[in-house]
Write a protein that binds this DNA or RNA. Structure first.
Length: 129
DNA sequence: TAGGCCATCTGGTCCT
DNA sequence: AGGACCAGATGGCCTA
């Protein structure tokens, strides 16, 4: 139907295309996220703390956590996994927002901005029907 | 070559 | 205590 929301959205600019569904994540850039299990956790010592000289806000001495190198490695892997899942969510969102005939995939910030516009557009359609 | 984008590391803070 | 989340820093890759 020519009045479908997607067609109306497409009419705002160029012809809208269905974006390919190929996964753009990884590309071999991620390190092995399973390697967390291979770290020798048994050698990790407990956290050490030292007292920083000043705490401007509270006046109380701040306790800073100092972690071992093994704990740092484990934390890095966790962070990589977290960012990986974040990027998976971005990929899902990318596939949901209609785009024009770009040769280039949307960046994360472009994906967010286009999603905002798209949601607003759809909301307007619903409210005016 | 500059700027944009991204992956990764890191330390701080919040929360369980 | 430790995991989740976050933001800053850094370096690599790509494109105009």
């Amino acid at each position: 139907s020519t009045s479908s929301p997607l067609r109306i959205f497409a009419a705002l600019g160029h012809q809208m295309i269905q974006r390919s569904t190929e996964s753009t994540d990884c590309n071999g850039l991620y390190q092995d996220l399973t390697s967390i299990h291979e770290l020798d956790i048994s050698t990790a010592r407990l956290n050490d703390f030292y007292t920083s000289p000043v705490s401007a806000s509270s006046g109380k001495p701040k306790r800073k956590r100092v972690i071992s190198s093994v704990q740092r490695q484990v934390a890095n892997i966790r962070e990589r996994k977290r960012m990986f899942s974040l990027n998976e969510a971005f990929d899902r969102l990318r596939r949901k927002v209609p785009t024009f005939a770009y040769e280039k995939r949307l960046s994360r910030i472009e994906t967010l901005r286009l999603a905002i516009v798209y949601i607003s557009f759809m909301t307007d359609i619903l409210e005016n029907n």
